[in-house]
């Protein structure tokens, strides 16, 4: 097959794999690229079954592919995007690529010799570079998506994404008739705190308190930064009484322990407004925010460091001190 002075050397120096099998999947030819990459010698494997020499190729799949090439006398293809490799081979970027094996684009072609005997030729192209770029792209897109959702300082959800989730959870709660509650809380006297310890001090309090609050929440709750020092928590499948309990725990977790910033010990507290979803319609999530905000306002007015829940139609409010 490689006697010809022109095509022989080209085949041998080609930077792609060339493999030929007969109708019984017995190896007829492997070019140098494949011999080197798979550490086999053509003289040793010629006439042996492809599946014996390359024990980990997907046999059923390859038989099906080759059958279609032989029967239909038309080419068949395999892309690394769907099947990363057909034959496990090392690639030439062992250091700069994260993948262990060469990503391959394969083309399977029908062949016959002058006597009419039929063969399948498989061309294997190294697509590792494309594979590596694709992986970089995907990691970057994931990071981008993440940073598009998260508040840079506190690592809780940013306002836009949090509000989207609130809206979806409100719709879900309405559809499945499940209770849903919202907590809005605000760090007490944040301006004073910033004036006293500087903005870095204020920031470190925000970072520490969000970490404490997060530890008290379930995976299904949505915790986001609503404004400067104001945060919101969507409690799914939770009625008012349960939400008040969570709110009190959060309140206590913040006030019970001071935040250490450099040599300072900063004492802080939060006020929490709680409301349970009780309206329907497109603007239900806005109404809910308004109700929780009203409760939060009352908690501030009542002296801070406390939880107040909104109750419909009442002018007096339920007061709970921690």
């Amino acid at each position: 097959m490689s006697n010809d002075w022109l095509t022989g050397p080209i085949l041998e120096q080609l930077n792609s794999g060339v493999l030929v099998v007969d109708e019984d999947f017995q190896l007829v030819y492997l070019n140098s690229f494949l011999q080197r990459h798979s550490s086999v010698q053509l003289t040793e494997v010629k006439g042996k079954s492809l599946f014996q020499v390359f024990a980990d190729v997907p046999e059923a799949w390859l038989r099906r592919k080759f059958a279609s090439v032989l029967e239909l006398q038309s080419p068949s293809f395999s892309s690394w995007e769907q099947r990363q490799y057909v034959i496990k081979l090392p690639h030439l970027r062992p250091v700069t690529s994260s993948s262990q094996y060469m990503a391959q684009n394969c083309t399977m072609l029908p062949l016959h010799d002058p006597t009419g005997r039929r063969y399948v030729c498989m061309l294997i192209e190294d697509a590792t570079d494309a594979f590596v770029y694709q992986q970089h792209l995907q990691t970057t897109l994931q990071k981008l998506e993440q940073s598009n959702r998260v508040d840079g300082l506190t690592q809780v959800l940013n306002r836009r994404y949090w509000e989207e989730q609130l809206k979806l959870e409100v719709q879900r709660a309405q559809r499945y008739r499940q209770p849903l509650s919202l907590l809005l809380f605000d760090l007490d006297k944040f301006k004073q705190l910033n004036d006293q310890y500087g903005h870095l001090g204020g920031d470190s309090v925000l970072i520490e308190l969000t970490a404490r609050v997060r530890a008290l929440l379930r995976d299904t709750d949505w915790f986001g930064r609503y404004g400067g020092e104001e945060f919101g928590i969507v409690l799914t499948n939770t009625a008012l009484a349960g939400a008040v309990e969570v709110a009190e725990r959060i309140c206590l977790a913040v006030s019970s322990k001071a935040v250490t910033f450099h040599e300072h010990s900063i004492q802080s507290s939060i006020s929490v407004g709680v409301a349970q979803l009780d309206t329907t319609g497109d603007r239900a999530h806005e109404v809910l925010i308004g109700q929780a905000d009203m409760a939060l306002y009352n908690a501030k007015k009542e002296g801070r460091n406390r939880v107040i829940s909104y109750s419909a139609g009442e002018t007096a409010f339920m007061v709970k001190t921690v």
Partner: peptide, 28 residues
């Protein structure tokens, strides 16, 4: 008929195979 599972992992591969078979047999 072509022997594929219907799980979504092989859906793209199945689609390209079917199309390739139809296209190349016809155009050949």
């Amino acid at each position: 008929l072509l022997g594929y599972d219907t799980d979504s992992a092989s859906e793209l591969e199945m689609l390209t195979d079917i199309s390739s078979i139809l296209t190349t047999t016809f155009l050949n």
